[in-house]
Write a protein that binds this DNA or RNA. Structure first.
Lengths: 201, 201
DNA sequence: TCATAAAAACCGACCATTTGGTATGTAAAA
DNA sequence: TTTTACATACCAAATGGTCGGTTTTTATGA
């Protein structure tokens, strides 16, 4: 794709991960890219449009998850695959945001979500769909794990699934706030290993 | 305290729970309160100041948690007390925000947190302190519960604590996004009951 | 009790700055 | 030569905030 266009997209993404839509100004986007206003409006028709494409790019490409690519045989393998995927995602995000040179990597994708919910009418449906898909994938593997005797629990499958999902999300937002996102993968592993062990027969 | 001042504070809180600091305009605050700009600036010196006081009010009064008021004898009682406290908090919040008359109650206190982290220099320390305190309280009761034989687990106390805390936070943010905050208490009870049962000897 | 002064509460026109966006132009590719 | 890629001066609207004024409340002393 076009170089300049991509630069604008990446720069905008970086900004939108740090500030809300309203807080990111055109001036900022323009000076941060090193381009001119004319250049920007040559490629995009408005701030909204660039935001929309940023969202599409971020959630469509970078942050998308293909649960089918994770192990379908063992819950333990499943969530380890998940953790590895998250680790990879974070590296990609860092690279895209140009923060791979050791300097701080602070990003808050909830800012993006909140703004997208306000600005893009159909984003909520998209999010809910992904939530449902994630839940379904977890329920699936948990059902399998129960059947195979890998785990045993009086909890409903969906409850176990929610325990995994929500604990991950909760750690995520707490570590965003504390600005210690780097630790997430490792600490989440500890958490989930603990939970998993508890579920073992 | 002064009526008008309080009205401004409550109205601002309501707005800051729906939009980011930048998105909430002076005009909005003024028209929403039914007062004039002059009146506003009679009580507050700037938008920042009202925000600062809103934060102080919200986290100091409404959303503060006294973990010592929860049961210290049983983990089950502890988290049930916690759930009841959350339920009460939500009712108070609804009342303060004047949404007790059946109409939608949508609030996103993470917006508040994110903005506070940017605008108020010492808010991060405050938040981390509260996180630590919450963790300590959970660890405490979990330790006790283990000692008393109420629960049994190979997991470290802090890991169990994090499981409770993070799953709660994760459900919170997911339900904020899905706009189904009302369900939180009930569903969190299911989740925690499940987790608790799993921990029982 | 009541006139009066002083202070507090409140109003809205006004202001400088910033906002997202446009118009018109030029340089470089195709 | 036509199209694409950029640059910049400019614009109307919105922004947070100010200022001079009026009304309302409160305190005071005869």
């Amino acid at each position: 794709m076009n170089d300049s266009r991509e630069l604008i997209l990446n720069t905008s993404l970086k900004l939108f991960l740090q500030k809300s839509f309203k807080e990111v100004t055109m001036k900022e986007i323009v000076t941060e890219t090193g381009m001119s206003k004319g250049a920007f409006y040559h490629y995009f028709s408005s701030k909204e449009q660039v935001f929309e494409e940023v969202i599409r790019f971020f959630y469509g490409d970078i942050m998308s998850v293909d649960y089918n690519s994770f192990s379908q045989n063992s819950l333990r393998e499943f969530y380890h695959d998940y953790l590895n995927h998250v680790g990879k995602q974070m590296k990609v995000a860092k690279y895209v945001l140009g923060a791979n040179d050791g300097n701080a990597f602070n990003s808050n994708h909830y800012l993006l979500i909140f703004d997208a919910l306000k600005i893009l009418p159909d984003f909520k449906a998209h999010l809910l769909e992904r939530q449902k898909e994630e839940l379904r994938s977890w329920v699936e593997i948990i059902k399998t794990a129960k059947k195979k005797g890998e785990i045993k629990s009086a909890m409903a499958d969906a409850t176990i699934a929610r325990l995994f999902i929500f604990s991950g999300d909760g750690m995520g937002i707490n570590y965003i706030i504390a600005d210690t996102l780097d630790k997430t993968k490792k600490e989440l592993q500890v958490l989930w290993d603990g939970l998993y062990t508890t579920l073992k027969p």
